[in-house]
């Protein structure tokens, strides 16, 4: 017998990259089902295209451009990027735009930096923002939920657009056009296909918390900050929407639970994650209320992704036995 020798520890907890990545994918299943229910065929086509394109580009780039023998498509990160990218798109987006989005997400957002673990920005968001800026018309004509088709669907203003209009005109009565909070919670509203049902996203988030895939710091700090800030604005001027509606609208829930919590691009320590989350919350509200875009979540997350290395450098965990100077 040739014994194996290695330094301790000799056992491993059994956690793996795959488990975490597919865990997040499983957490996205309720929202996926909801999107199929609300947008039908459109949702299916967009998601399938996005996932397939992301996996394909990951494979093609590792294999032919980087020339790596070991392929990484099985670790689930490309599938997850594809899912999240799809969740951020309207359900009637042409396939070719989706493929461009996937190429940017995987190609520029991830593989240029060396692949999983080294990308500074969330790849799905890089893809999404690229599309948002390049194809503003297609990216912001949101189909009304409840239509099963892919082409020729009826579009309407999203709750965020209504809020923006109310702020711009200063006319609080516009806000009465908003769908009820209950509808927004369940998903009876317009928007990107994955972001409409807040309740399903919350279920997924709780699943991830229970499985210890993520910690509470980022979602709680983002949602809390947005709630407090939006409430403050609402109190000062009622033409700003009520905090509950702000939290339930747009990509806030999706961003707070699934995009901002991306391992690679978020800070390592709990303290750092709180700072990161609070900053994202503040930026989101500022962009939504005062910026030119109705939605600020993606930009806020990308901006804070850029600050993550800085946070990691300066926010250290509390050392054992550390004495405050």
């Amino acid at each position: 017998m040739k014994p194996i020798i290695s330094l301790s520890p000799h056992v491993h907890g059994g956690d793996s990259v795959q488990k975490n990545m597919y865990g997040v994918c499983i957490a996205l299943v309720p929202a996926l089902v909801a999107s199929l229910y609300f947008f039908g065929l459109g949702s299916a086509i967009v998601l399938a295209t996005s996932v397939a394109a992301c996996v394909f580009f990951e494979w093609a780039i590792t294999r032919f451009i980087l020339g790596r023998e070991r392929l990484t498509i099985c670790d689930g990160s490309a599938v997850l990027t594809g899912l999240l990218l799809g969740f951020n798109l309207p359900s009637n987006l042409p396939i070719w735009i989706i493929i461009i989005g996937a190429l940017v997400a995987i190609g520029i957002g991830k593989m240029t930096f060396g692949g999983l673990g080294t990308n500074p920005f969330n790849p799905a968001l890089v893809g999404r923002v690229f599309l948002l800026i390049s194809f503003p018309v297609q990216m912001t004509s949101w189909p009304v939920s409840g239509q099963m088709g892919y082409v020729d669907v009826e579009t309407a203003a999203t709750p965020l657009a209504i809020m923006k209009a109310a702020i711009k005109s200063g006319d609080a009565s516009l806000l009465s056009q908003l769908p009820s909070s209950m509808d927004m919670l369940l998903g009876q509203t317009g928007g990107s296909l994955g972001e409409v049902s807040a309740i399903c996203l919350l279920i997924g988030c709780i699943f991830m918390l229970v499985r210890k895939i993520i910690t509470w710091h980022i979602p709680v700090s983002i949602l809390g900050t947005v709630f407090v800030l939006a409430g403050l604005f609402h109190l000062i001027d009622p033409s700003y929407a009520a905090p509950f509606q702000v939290i339930l609208s747009g990509g806030l829930m999706l961003g707070a639970c699934f995009m901002a919590t991306d391992y690679v691009t978020s800070p390592m320590t709990g303290k750092g994650q709180l700072i990161y989350g609070i900053a994202i919350g503040v930026l989101t509200v500022l962009i939504r209320d005062f910026g030119s875009y109705p939605e600020g979540m993606s930009f806020a997350i990308l901006i804070m992704n850029g600050f993550t290395p800085l946070i990691n450098t300066y926010i250290k965990p509390k050392r054992f036995g550390e004495v405050k100077k």
Binding site: I4, H10, S16, T72, G117, T215, V264, M268, T269, P317
Partner: peptide, 27 residues
Amino acid sequence: EKESRRGEVSPCIRCGKCVTACPMGLE
């Protein structure tokens, strides 16, 4: 033999789990 082998090493995904687990508060 099966228990003894370490799993295949893959790139760090910066999940921060080691930071959470460290009992001395190190990174």
